[in-house]
Simulated assay, not measured.
Amino acid sequence: MASPGYGKRSAPGQAPHDPHTFAHLPAREAYIASHIDRLPDGAAMDAKTLAKELPYGQQAVRTALNNLSEAGHLRRVREPAGDGTTQWVFRTYFSRTARSDAWWERWLNEGDEPQPDATPQRSPAYDALATLGLADPRLALSARECADLEPLAAEWLARGIPPAQLIATLTAGLPSSVHSPAAFTRRRLREKMPPEPPLPPAPSGRRIMECTSCRTPGRPEALSGGLCRVCRGVDVPDDAGVNARHQAAVRNHAARVRAGIRPGGRA
């Protein structure tokens, strides 16, 4: 485990884990993502610690973490400790559900870290799914099916679609018979997913995102895939070229000076 207040934090609104959760990733990244997914909140997940727990070296783990960041599964963040002091803590937020840059930026600007509810209640997304069977018997879902589809429905509501509109969209234009209501509903939830709403006008300033690779702080829009431009290879400093030009200018100036003090030369 990391020091108290540091380490892994789970991002909100993740879909439940299934055998195909990380199937879109390369084998190494999928293996490491599955390991991180099983870690409890607060666990250390720096490259050095993970390399001790996994069959990969530190450099391979660092590369995999960068790739997971670009794939939308994690972001490094520094934020106030929340204990009334001025101390800042450094955390890595992990989401088994891949998120876009826009989603991470919206979440970063929302404010306080989501806290777990000690008294779980049915969510509006679950209620909307449970109501489908009343709106049209062809889409009657079991309690387990509602729970499985809840994250997808919750994403609709998070994008500004009210429950009544969600129900109307899912039940519109149904075929005469639906052999698998759960599969049909899942397909519609995915295929008709509305676009993400516009970003909030200004950041809250409570959290600062860092480059996953070099940990340089920056605004979310400057850290595409969680990486700064240099680590993405977009801006590569040409220090060697700058130094060479500077040294050549110095040599030319020295030659002109020497020419001026030679016998017969102009001072």
Rank of each mutant, 00 (worst) to 15 (best):
V242E: 10
P201F: 05
G225K: 03
K52N: 13
R219L: 14
A183Y: 08
S69G: 15
P137W: 02
R266E: 02
T212H: 12
A249R: 14
N66V: 12
R75N: 04
V89T: 13
R106T: 07
R38F: 12
A60F: 05
S95H: 04
D148K: 08
R188I: 02
R106M: 14
S177R: 15
E29K: 09
W103S: 07
G111T: 03
G57R: 10
E155G: 09
A27W: 13
V77Y: 01
F184Y: 13
T212L: 08
R144N: 10
S123K: 00
A135R: 06
A2C: 10
G264W: 01
T21I: 02
S123D: 04
H24F: 13
G72M: 04
R188E: 01
Y31L: 11
S3D: 14
H253K: 06
R78Q: 11
A98F: 02
D46K: 05
P4F: 14
H17Q: 15
T171Y: 03
R206H: 14
M45G: 02
P80M: 08
P263F: 05
V178K: 02
A222T: 09
R207I: 11
A43H: 09
A164K: 14
G241C: 11
P220R: 02
R106K: 11
P19L: 03
A128S: 10
R144L: 13
P237R: 06
L65D: 00
A244T: 10
A71W: 01
G264D: 01
H246P: 06
A143T: 07
A2D: 08
P163N: 01
D117A: 13
R159N: 10
A30H: 10
G84K: 02
S100L: 07
P12Q: 03
P162W: 07
A64R: 00
S3W: 15
H253R: 15
P197L: 00
P175I: 11
K192S: 11
G82Y: 04
L141D: 02
Q247W: 15
L174C: 08
Y93A: 02
D148T: 07
T119V: 15
T171P: 05
L139E: 01
C231Y: 04
R232G: 03
D37F: 11
R106V: 04
V257S: 13
T97V: 06
V61G: 07
R9E: 01
Y56W: 14
L152R: 07
P80C: 07
T49E: 07
L134M: 14
A27I: 11
Q58C: 13
P198A: 11
V242D: 05
A60L: 12
A254Y: 12
D46L: 08
F22P: 00
P114V: 01
A43D: 09
Q115L: 15
T171W: 04
E113S: 09
A154I: 03
R38W: 09
S142H: 15
G84V: 08
L74G: 09
P26R: 11
E191A: 05
L227G: 06
G225S: 02
D112T: 13
